[in-house]
Design a protein around this nucleic acid. Structure first.
Length: 722
RNA sequence: GGCGAGGUAGCUCAGUUGGUUAGAGCACAGGAUUCAUAACCCUGAGGUCACGAGUUCAAAUCUCGUUCUCGCUACCA
């Protein structure tokens, strides 16, 4: 879209179950903020929306963990996240929240329209309901006897004995695993979004129309999803935390919208709230074809913003995103960021350690913004290292950018009486004019790069202008010319003219730096304005490239440093802090922790830690389980399976084959010879073509790492456990 | 295992429709300088472009295979 009338920019709604780290910042919020600041400097009509995503099962789970309520959780994290963003200069026009009634109403209206138009499929089923737990039961929570093989422990979705896929209805004598009682059949209905109906549209829209202007990683991901076959996706669930279905919907009582459905609608409700607050009309931003909609997200969110939400928008009659510049992930000191392993740098920690310190201040926010932009994972995963952070600050921001502004101001005070010196046209050299010409060259480059969402390259060009300034000053050597004095001790006229021209140009260049750096380092841009005694209005983008931003004869302030150096001690402190806080993972534990807030996570959260205690059983229930000590005498990787190991276990009385999903945690070599606990009377089950006869007991720690359960000292294989 | 994205100097990354000695920044080395936060400026060293084969007059770039990293997905009783 070449010249849109208005822009709507969104940044992924952070999930309100905990603090967010710098990976989230680099992935979505910072690039979005840079883009928005650039557009606003251009006086474009733009709204930048974001907000907390507060639904989904992970919120109640987090509440259980913290011993509180879901409401308390979101009320705790929402204001902190909002404050974190503000401290780091992420300037949303509105930071909304999906628990707001306006959002609930918006999401309900959205659902209703799709439903009324017949765009959703309703599947009405008799589903099992646990009267004691007062909830519908997911297939997994029902056990019964398999109609196929008569195995008594079959699950509602599949029999583990014969492998047959089942529906709960087929089970004989079903039992709820929540209460242990027989569930009753209850009529329920669920609504589905039939993505499969829209495959042609998606192919055309993404794989053809946007094949070239979207990032290859984004298009590739979409292709992978589309080629994999799109399925109808459940829009509703039987749950009590979320957006209730509209009361007018028949059979909707006790149901909420699936969080993946309501969360992106949060962008719309946020826009509505913004419009209410500012006396604007929100509709054109979501309905007018002349609006350019851009979603900034991390790569784990691609499917929602490129496939699912666009289908929803299309059906609802809204505009579609013009681009979805998803970033890859940001690693930290050689490893993936992970909340569960505590391998991360939270925004809050950075704010505490650098910004809210005596030698900190908002320019430290800009330092982080600088480094995160410089290493932004635009085309592939990238890495945050504390050394890299220090280097970027000390040898680029301080040495090149800050130093140029500082020496220009210092020299001006020394050689030009503290005032902006005049430009003497007769004394202009080729170098003067070519340097002046660089202003607009840089502006053009930065502009073009920002339009293509190439923030890293754009920032480089701005710093490069400072570099050009340093080179220019070095060649002109005004401090040398100042020594060419006449009898009165003052510099000769020719020398002074050259000095004037040099500093005039350097100061104008500083003003340009302020305009150009503003989207990236807003605090620094304002500080330069302060030093140059100009109003912030100078930061309007139309001033970029201009050579007469400062008036001749105007006296400027005494120089102040823009950035301070970061000492080695600060870096080693951070490294130690990271190491000591980290929960180690010795072996190759696969962690699916992502660096960006993720709506998917909400749906199937597998938070380790405090699990609710299962319903009470009687001794006889326990006595059914036959546990024995065994010894692994051979282990090998199962072909075509990442997680499975085929184990040969000596049980004393016999030797068995057991297939276990522990390959990500242990290598075959390291576990041979280990004593283990085996469930020996578990029904056999085929996995990847190998029959598994039993199950190995494992303990999982907070970091998700597995540990064998075994006797303190080696004892006879086959020993019983009770 | 399937699909997608990657593997280019010590580090972070560019390399357009295949075309002369493969680029930048940082780090490093040498030189020069002192207005400046021991900063700046100049010069230099440093790469079998993951590996192997093929197409071509010509391959970092196209094709096939291998391998490694990341993501999605299947396998977890």
């Amino acid at each position: 879209m070449s010249n849109p009338k208005r822009y709507l920019i969104t940044a992924a709604l952070p999930y309100a179950n905990g603090l967010k780290h710098v990976g989230h910042l680099a992935g979505a919020y910072l690039p979005a903020d840079i883009y928005v600041r650039y557009l606003k400097a251009q006086k474009r009509d733009v709204v930048f929306v974001c907000g907390s995503d507060e639904h989904g099962t992970a919120i109640p789970i987090q509440a259980t963990k913290e011993g509180t309520t879901a409401r308390d959780i979101i009320d705790k994290y929402h204001p902190i996240m909002a404050q974190n963003f503000q401290d780091l200069g992420i300037a949303f026009d509105i930071y909304h929240r999906t628990s707001d009634p306006l959002h609930h109403a918006t999401a309900q209206e959205f659902f209703t329209r799709l439903n009324d138009n017949g765009d959703l499929e309703i599947k009405e089923t008799e589903q099992y309901f646990d009267e004691e737990a007062n909830s519908f039961l997911a297939d997994r929570y029902i056990k019964g006897t398999c109609p196929n093989c008569s195995y008594p422990g079959a699950y509602g979705d599949q029999c583990e004995n014969c492998g047959k896929s089942l529906s709960p209805d087929e089970l004989i004598n079903p039992v709820s695993t929540l209460s242990g009682k027989a569930p009753v059949k209850k009529q329920t209905r669920h609504w589905y979004l039939p993505l499969n109906r829209h495959e042609d549209f998606l192919r055309e829209w993404i794989l053809k129309e946007h094949a070239n202007d979207w990032r290859s990683t984004v298009v590739g991901q979409c292709k992978s999803w589309i080629d994999g076959g799109l399925q109808p996706r459940a829009v509703t669930r039987d749950l009590d935390w979320g957006v209730s279905l509209p009361e007018t919907v028949e059979g909707g009582k006790g149901k909420v919208l699936y969080v993946w459905f309501d969360a992106p609608i949060g962008y719309i409700s946020a826009t509505k709230q913004w419009a209410l607050d500012n006396g604007k009309d929100w509709r054109p931003y979501w309905e007018d074809k002349d609006t350019k909609l851009v979603h900034f997200i991390g790569k784990d969110n691609i499917v929602f913003h490129c496939i699912i939400f666009p289908v929803m928008l299309k059906l609802h009659g809204n505009i579609l995103p013009d681009n979805v510049p998803a970033n890859e992930f940001l690693n930290l000191e050689g490893d993936k960021m992970s909340t569960s392993r505590n391998w991360k740098l939270e925004m809050q920690d950075y704010i505490d350690d650098f910004i809210n310190k005596e030698n900190g201040g908002s320019q430290m926010a800009d330092v982080l913004r600088y480094y995160l932009t410089q290493i932004a994972p635009e085309t592939k995963d990238s890495e945050f290292t504390w050394k890299g952070f220090q280097d970027a600050n000390n040898s680029e921001l301080v040495s090149i950018f800050g130093n140029f502004v500082n020496r220009a101001l210092v020299l001006m005070h020394k050689l030009c009486k503290g005032k902006v010196p005049p430009l003497h046209p007769n004394a202009l050299t080729d170098l003067d004019t070519s340097t002046l010409a660089e202003f607009s060259v840089t502006k053009e480059k930065v502009e073009a790069l920002l339009e293509q969402y190439k923030f890293r390259d754009a920032l480089f060009e701005v710093i490069n202008l400072a570099r050009i300034g340093n080179q220019y000053m070095q060649k002109k050597e005004p401090w040398i010319l100042a020594k060419q004095t006449g009898e009165d001790g003052q510099p000769l006229t020719d020398a002074q003219q050259s000095i004037d021209n040099t500093l005039h140009i350097c100061l104008q260049l500083c003003a340009n730096l302020a305009v150009l750096i503003n989207p990236f380092l807003p605090f620094t841009a304002r500080k330069i304005c302060y030093l140059l005694k100009v109003v912030d209005k100078m930061l309007d983008w139309e001033n970029a490239g201009k050579t007469k931003l400062l008036s001749v004869g105007y006296s400027l302030r005494a120089p102040e440093l823009l950035f301070r150096k970061i000492e080695d001690a600060e870096i080693s402190y951070q490294l130690e802090k990271l190491q000591s806080a980290a929960i180690k993972r010795e072996s190759l534990v696969g962690s699916s922790e992502s660096a960006i807030t993720n709506t998917e996570k909400i749906m199937e959260e597998n938070t380790p830690g405090t699990l609710p205690v299962k319903p009470t059983i009687v001794f006889d229930d326990f006595a059914k389980i036959d546990l024995r000590v065994g010894k692994i005498i051979a282990a090998e990787k199962v072909e075509k399976a990442d997680k499975l190991l085929k184990l040969t276990v000596d049980l004393g009385f016999e030797t068995r084959t057991i297939v276990s999903g522990i390959a990500l945690h242990f290598t075959p070599e390291e576990i041979v010879g280990k004593q283990i606990t085996v469930v020996v009377n578990l029904a056999p089950r085929k996995m990847r073509g190998i029959e598994s006869n039993g199950m190995i007991l494992m303990a999982e720690d907070a970091a998700g790492k597995l540990h064998f359960i075994n006797p303190e000292e080696g004892i006879d294989n086959g020993s019983s456990i009770s």
